[in-house]
Every structure is written in C-alpha cells, then in structure tokens.
Design a protein around this nucleic acid. Structure first.
Lengths: 335, 335
DNA sequence: TTGTAGGCGTTATCAG
DNA sequence: CTGATAACGCCTACAA
C-alpha cells in the first residue's frame, strides 16, 4: 500500500493561482496578504488537505518546535510505582502544550540509549533538552549545554554545576517532618534513606541527620533505593538493630508504605508504637492503612517550572541558575 | 549566546579531502568505500564532531526513524495511578530501542492537542503512529490510516474497524474470575464496571454479565470510571442496593482497592464476608490489605506487540488485523 | 570506487 | 502586496 502523495506548497499555489511564497505567507499567518487571496489560498489548502512538511521547514528555520525530555533511567525503573516521572511528564506536557511545542520523550537507560539521545539531540531534532532525575554525575547535560543546546535539569546535578536546574527543598521538608516527630514526643527516630548516588537521596538523609543531631538525638539509619521492596528490607533491618525505635522517616512513600506493613507484621501499632512519615505524597498515600503522613513535593510543578525555564532559555532570555520549590508536611494518621 | 555552528557534510568532506557523497556513504555505512578513505572520513567526523542534520536527511529519505505514541487522554488522567500508560510506554520504548527508532510521546487530551497530533503526524514527522486507549469512537486513527500513515491501536477501536489493533482477552479474564468466585461458593456477586465508552469497560462488563447469567445468578451492577474515588462511590452504592452481596468483581485494581477499604469501613470482612477480585494486577495490588486477587493483563506486552506490528506495517509487510493477548487470574488473599 | 549534480519542500531575501 | 530565486543539508542516481 503506497502512501498517498501529499500535496506540497507548489500544488497549493498552482491551485490557488498564486506563488509558493504567498501560500507560505498565508500558512504561516503573515498579515501582509490581501483578503481575497488569503481566502483563495485557504480554500486550496483545505481542498487539497495540505499539511506543511516539518522537515523542510525546520531545515530552513533551524527550529523544530519540539523539545526532548530525557529520562536517564533504565526503562524498567522509570515507571515503577512512584509517581515521579509520570508527574514530571504531565507538568512538562502541560506547559509545552500552552507553548504549542511538541514533547519528545526519550528513555536513556542503556548506554545505547545514551548514544541515541546524544545523536538525536545534537542532530537538531529538538530546540532544547530537559533532563529528569540524574544518577551520579552524568556528563550528558553538560556536554549538550556545551554544544549550545538549551538544557535544564530536574534535581541539582551532581557533576559540574553550569546547567540550570529545578529542585525541591528536600532538606527543609525532611527537617520539618522530623521536627514534627520530635514535637510529638518521639525520641528514637530512625530513617530509611534513599540511594546515595542521587541528590534526592543525599539531601533527604542530610536533612534527617541535621535535625536529629541538633535535637541531641541519635541518627538511626537504614538504606533503601526508594522502592517498596528495599523499604521492607530496610525496615526489618532497622527493627533488628533498634528494637526500641518509636518513629521512622522514610525517604519515599513507597518505602514508607512497605515500612507500615513490615511494622504491623512485627506486631507494632502505627502510630501508637511507631510513627511513620514518608516523602512524596503519591496518590496512594491517602489510601494506605493507616493513611500516610508525608512530605509533599510539587512534582507536577517541577515539570512546569523546568519547561518554562527551558523555553525562556531557548528564547535567548537569561535564566536563573536554579529554582528551589517548597515542600510541605501533609498530616494524616500514621504520625 | 549563539549556538556554535555545527559542521555540515561539506566541511567534513573538505577536511577529509573527499566529496560530500563519499562522506555521506561512510556516515551511512556503505561498504563501497575504500578502507583508507573511510578512515580519513571517520577521523574528520570525530575531529569536527559532525552529526547529521536529521531534518535534511528525512527531507530526502522520507523517513524519520521515529514513531509517535498518542495518548488521547486528558493529560491529568493519563498518569493517575493505574499503570496502564506507563506500562505501554515501557513496552513501546523497549521495542523501539531494539529497532533503533525514536519515541515521540504525544498527549492529546484537549481538542487543541488533537489538532497538534494531526498536524505533527501528517507533517511527516513520524514513520507511524501508535494509539493507546481510545475513548468513544475517535476518528483520528482512521483518518491517519486513510492518509497512508501506518497506524496501530491498543484496544479494539470502537469506530470503524479498519485499523489493526492489539488487545487483551477482557471477557475471558473476567469470566475466569467470576467463575472462580462461583466455584468458591459465592452467589451474590456484584461488579463495579468501568466507563462504558471504552472497550475495556464494555468488554469486562459483558464478561461479567455473561458468566453470572449463565450460572443463573443475578447481575448486580455498579459503575465507576476505573479510578479509586469512583470505585469507593460505586461500592457504597452497591452495598446500599444489595446489602447481602458476598463478592464483588471490580473492573480495575484501583476500584478494587477502594472497594476493599469501603467494605471494611462498612464492617465487612474480606474475604470472609465479601470476596473481592480486581483487574490489572498493578504493582500495589500485592500490597493492599488483604493482598488483592486480580486478573493480570500483560500491559507491557501490549506495548511491545503494538510496536512490532507497526514496524512491520511500516516496512510494508502485511499485518494481522488484530492480536488478542491472554489474561490470567492471580490468586492472593482477597478472594 | 569516487565525484558531480539535481532535487527534497520550505522559508527568506529581494525586486517589482 | 506579490513573485522570483536562492539557500537549508543531505542523499542518490548517474557518470567518470
């Protein structure tokens, strides 16, 4: 089945009895075209079902009206159960829609994926690149920025700090949560920390450490990687090492959820015996048993702000080197 | 800050002391180029950091090596809490990665989004289009297919049936679940159905109806829209109308989860008083209280199969008009 | 095996 | 206000 030959500017021009240039003007909304001619062109466009060839256009304009969102995670982990990526995507998408630009999503978990991203983005297929959640010190954002491509990251990049980024106030949010636990009389407050090769993991642990230390309390630390399974394991471990703990702050809601179940399985009541606080405020946090007290981060907003920053950057406007969004404590029943 | 002028084929050719044509051959992996020359070209490419301009290339090849995945949902609903879209994205992404093609994600919830999708896809920016989860009888897939663009849908399209699609055996899965409830002695089996403008909602309800009817049991039907909140409301309503129900099949895990909580709040024990079965097998289904018995659908596989179908279609091979994937019952503790 | 030259569909710069 | 006419960067017969 051969693809029906789509009409070109030339054919529209012929049909409307004008030149290609004029058709182009009408199509691109130039106001310097006489009314009747505009009318004729529009009719021809409609009759022929003409649609501009984007490749040809961007070849000459050097713009593509689309921007890439790179998720440098293994594709398998990107859409697990936390709602970070979906939230980012929604935020980015919404803002892009307002700007009438197209979103190109790129999963770059594998080395091959990494290469593909590099090729695609440097190949002038996008007007800018958004990076979500970097692991370790990924050089790609810096490389692309060095090539002159507008780049914005979500989360403070661990590597060089020349790329603008948007992040939330991890430490502040955690601090507020831990302070709340202290205020409600808890004294043996443990934490299930996130992976220490990601800023979110590092900063949240730091926030916990600073706050308990400042209160003269001991730091009881277990480690997970934000997933439920890792949270359950860490909770069991914590229970082993500190059987007298009376509260736990988990660096993600998924880990907090697992902690809830693990604690119950171990015969502890929540919040009577042990208070639990999470981080994220994912949709199901309101549906755990008991409903989870947690630190909310405005994920969708991160996506929106990143996008606005990038669009301004791409438009040549100066942009702030970083934007930090606030977090806040959502009190439910687990603490 | 001006964008560093990227080198073109021309400049690479000059540097390597050959013609553009030869550089093009090397870049595109033609074997008809002498070893030493190939070497020289590669060096020039590396030194200059040359990357082909994709727009120019696709202008002449008529290929873009990227395919669009259209999610015709309101962006707000796309990434709620069920894991359908993320799963599809992962499956598509994995298969595309293997084919070294680029994924372009398009959220087309609003009418404006719809128009943008049409413009973008017909603008030759992609080699094919994948549609996920259509609402009602969306004409877009048919339109694009009519234009000669390769198209594949996930879920049997409600409108015209000329577009190839991939779906799961909704009715069969539901039927097995309901039969299981009947076998375990349940006689007042209710259902929380999904939205009736989507095939998934329609087919699952049909599967329920057929099975209870065939067993001589009454159909006790409540309606939701796959979300948790709608499930809670439907469960309360069902409890009102049929206080003696002893089982409920929910057309989504999210609704099943809400039903679990609603039943408990109403003083019913699960599964002793009321058995609950869901549909989807989302990650958190194993973490509800009690863990949810549910019908698993191979979401990731849907994405993969769709993609393979599309790629074959785009390659000019004949493709089957539809592929139905199996579902199976995952027994946990709620039924 | 390599080079030459034409054209892909648009936009942009000039004249008219 | 409209129409020629160059690019834009690349691929691909065709010729050498």
């Amino acid at each position: 089945m051969t693809m029906a030959q789509r009409p070109t500017l030339e054919e529209v021009a012929r049909r409307a009895g004008v030149s290609r240039a004029t058709v182009s003007r009408v199509v691109n909304g130039s106001t310097t075209v006489a009314g009747p001619i505009q009318e004729a062109v529009r009719r021809a466009v409609a009759e022929l079902g003409y649609v501009p060839n984007l490749a040809a256009r961007s070849l000459v304009t050097h713009r593509t009206d689309s921007i890439a969102l790179v998720l440098p995670e293994a594709a398998t982990r990107v859409f697990s159960d936390d709602h970070f990526f979906p939230g980012i995507i929604r935020g980015v998408s919404r803002e892009l829609e307002a700007a009438d630009k197209q979103l190109v999503l790129m999963l770059a978990g594998s080395p091959a994926g990494h290469a593909r991203v590099r090729r695609y983005t440097t190949g002038r297929h996008v007007d800018g690149v958004l990076f979500a959640s970097l692991h370790g010190a990924d050089p790609l954002p810096g490389t692309l920025a060095g090539l002159g491509l507008p780049v914005v990251c979500s989360g403070r990049p661990l590597g060089d700090g020349s790329v603008p980024y948007v992040d939330v106030d991890h430490a502040g949010g955690v601090s507020r949560a831990v302070a709340y636990l202290i205020d409600s009389g808890r004294r043996r407050i443990a934490t299930i920390a996130g992976p220490q090769d990601m800023v979110a993991g590092i900063d949240r642990l730091a926030g916990y450490r600073d706050t308990v230390t400042a209160a003269g309390l001991p730091a009881l630390v277990g480690y997970g990687d934000f997933t439920r399974d890792s949270g359950a394991a860490a909770m069991r471990d914590l229970l082993d090492r500190y059987p007298d703990l009376d509260a736990v702050f988990a660096a993600s809601d998924l880990m907090a959820h697992a902690a809830l179940r693990t604690l119950r399985a171990a015969g502890r009541r929540v919040p009577e015996d042990v208070a639990v606080v999470g981080f994220d405020d994912i949709p199901s946090a309101a549906y755990t048993d008991p409903p989870l007290t947690t630190v909310r981060q405005p994920i969708l907003e991160i996506g929106r702000v990143m996008t606005r920053l990038l669009l301004r950057h791409a438009a040549g406007e100066p942009v702030e080197p970083s934007v930090i969004l606030p977090t806040d404590l959502v009190r439910r029943d687990s603490a």
